[in-house]
């Protein structure tokens, strides 16, 4: 494992910590898209189907369990917690799941590395992860007064895939035969979706003003 991969994973992990912190500290999930959280949970469930059948390392297994556990915990907080669930911006979080899930499912059926159920579902999770942030970005644009933790959460999520791109470049040059077109192209698309957000995030940070996305 190289430094970019480790940094990417740690940033990803940190994004969960920041999100749980925001929800718990403020007892509010205002500005957080439940749709994006549900899509991420679906992504992890589909990707980690091999959790118990394919052992790579203690690190991998632990991280997978943490990602799955945290995702379900966030869903519980947003949908089941008495105090928190009433703060959910239901009327604003209107993105349709099917616009994302259906094209990703079709693409996974058409473009994959092997025609096996496991491989197709895994590929679907890669495609879905690339676009799962869209409901959150739309909600962010509609939210006035984005709080710092929410802004930081989205920034960390974007940074994580960016660091993975560096990891793939590193692996390409250090490991023979390391070619992963599906993962690379999806990861690049995923990172590009954040560029606009990054621009405004960094601008607000440099000018020391509150983050606001133009609508």
């Amino acid at each position: 494992m190289n430094i970019f991969r480790l940094a990417g994973d740690m940033v990803h992990l940190l994004s969960f910590v920041v999100l749980v912190l925001k929800i718990n500290a403020t007892k509010s999930c205002r500005g957080i898209s439940l749709k994006t959280q549900e899509l991420y949970t679906l992504v992890f469930v589909c990707r980690y189907l091999d959790l118990f059948s394919n052992f790579i390392s203690m690190y991998n297994t632990t991280m997978k369990i943490v990602f799955l556990g945290t995702s379900f915990a966030i869903l519980y907080l947003m949908r089941g917690h008495k105090v928190i669930k009433v703060t959910y911006d239901r009327e604003q979080d209107t993105f349709r799941y099917l616009f994302l899930v259906l094209p990703c499912a079709l693409l996974a059926l058409l473009i994959h590395n092997a025609w096996t159920p496991f491989e197709v579902v895994w590929t679907f999770s890669i495609y879905l992860e690339a676009v799962a942030i869209l409901p959150q970005l739309v909600l962010l644009q509609r939210t006035q007064n984005i709080d710092n933790l929410t802004g930081n959460y989205v920034f960390l999520l974007g940074l994580y895939r960016g660091l993975y791109i560096l990891n793939w470049i590193y692996r390409y040059f250090t490991e023979p035969h390391y070619i992963q077109w599906i993962v690379w192209i999806s990861g690049i698309v995923q990172t590009i979706l954040y560029l606009d957000f990054f621009y405004y995030y960094i601008k607000s940070w440099k000018n020391n003003v509150k983050l606001a996305l133009p609508s």
Partner: peptide
């Protein structure tokens, strides 16, 4: 070699 994808990543 375009083999199975990198299942060693998260």
């Amino acid at each position: 070699l375009v083999g199975l994808n990198a299942k060693d990543e998260l």
